[in-house]
């Protein structure tokens, strides 16, 4: 390709530093004034190696989807750096960002809402190529689209059909083919399998993993289903109210979760085995996620935390690195 990027020295593809995404809350019809701020993402940092999958988990309002959108610059970051393939893209203008976005793509949750119902599959998949000026050679375009369609496991004759003719799982395959069209290096999957029935979900999870092996893709896999995330991720970051509370390799996180919120999340998920469930200790935390408009002072999890101490009510614990690359933000683990 003409604009092939120079290879970077390390295998680091993405570094997010102290990313903040704040939304103003406005009041008034004629004269608007800002009355509050929703700190959807409030200072998070993580890195991603090429070919790796980072799972991003947490409950609604934790900021996981906002993080994904901000990394793709589909939401403006309020503060922080987003270093993608060696360049800080946090301040890129529209034109430069359009260029960068060829290398980073998104697969969305809703396979019904994210495909234009009036476009044929071939045009949906081919559109990114045309937008980026790669569709002038019509024959090459047609071949490329056909290759993409077969790559995601659809049949060639499906190219001339419309989205409504497909089931949820097939639509998600179309969305994946479209995201792959520009040969991106980073793909952000935002609840990409959450809306699918379980028997179909496994098909799409396997497809993501096959494509990663074949094409060396890097994923940020955003989901609330911790079992799916565990299956697909190398490392996992757990978010709560705009903060990363724990980040660790997959096996460490599930074998030995350190943050009380991670422990609570894992305990809340039932395992499909009645005998095991009957003997599993049932520690269910109380309360619900508070509003991001008024996060609790100190550690944001302290009102629900079974181990909360006095210090947790006033001082926010920083995300502290530990040996082996894991990090946890909790006063119990100074």
């Amino acid at each position: 390709m003409p604009d092939a990027t120079t290879p970077i020295a390390t295998d680091e593809i993405l570094r997010v530093e102290d990313l903040k995404v704040h939304f103003p809350v406005m009041k008034g019809v004629v004269i608007q004034k800002q009355v509050a701020t929703v700190k959807a993402v409030d200072g998070i940092s993580f890195t991603l190696r090429r070919g790796e999958t980072l799972g991003l988990v947490g409950e609604s309002g934790c900021g996981k989807s906002t993080t994904g959108l901000a990394v793709l610059r589909m939401l403006p970051p309020t503060e922080g750096r987003i270093i993608f393939e060696g360049e800080d893209i946090a301040g890129y203008d529209g034109e430069r960002m359009r260029h960068t976005r060829r290398r980073m793509q998104m697969v969305y949750q809703d396979p019904y809402g994210s495909l234009n119902p009036r476009m044929r599959v071939r045009d949906i998949v081919g559109e990114p190529l045309e937008v980026h000026g790669l569709g002038d050679d019509r024959r090459a375009l047609r071949e490329r689209v056909a290759a993409l369609i077969s790559m995601v496991g659809l049949l060639p004759d499906m190219a001339d059909r419309y989205p409504h003719e497909f089931s949820g799982g097939q639509r998600q395959r179309i969305g994946i083919a479209r995201a792959m069209a520009l040969e991106p290096s980073l793909i952000i999957c935002d609840e990409a399998v959450s809306a699918l029935d379980v028997s179909i979900q496994a098909q799409v999870v396997n497809l993501f993993m096959e494509l990663q092996q074949r094409l060396g893709l890097t994923y940020i896999f955003i989901a609330h289903d911790l079992a799916v995330v565990r299956h697909i991720s190398d490392r996992i970051a757990v978010m709560y109210l705009g903060k990363i509370v724990e980040i660790a390799t997959r096996d460490e996180l599930y074998r030995d979760p350190l943050h009380p919120y991670t422990q609570a999340l894992l305990a809340a998920i039932p395992i499909p085995d009645p005998e095991l469930e009957a003997t599993r200790p049932q520690q269910i935390i109380t309360g619900e996620v508070p509003s991001a408009l008024r996060p609790p002072p100190g550690c944001r999890f302290h009102p629900r935390c079974p181990h909360a101490m006095d210090v947790c009510k006033t001082q926010e614990p920083p995300l502290k690195g530990r040996p082996g690359g894991r990090a946890v933000a909790c006063h119990l683990h100074p």
């Binding site: 496994a202 079992a227 565990r230 299956h231 395992i271």
Partner: peptide, 12 residues
């Protein structure tokens, strides 16, 4: 169905 669901305690 049983074979298609990932489990928290499954073999990754």
């Amino acid at each position: 169905l049983m074979a298609s669901i990932p489990r928290l305690d499954g073999d990754t």
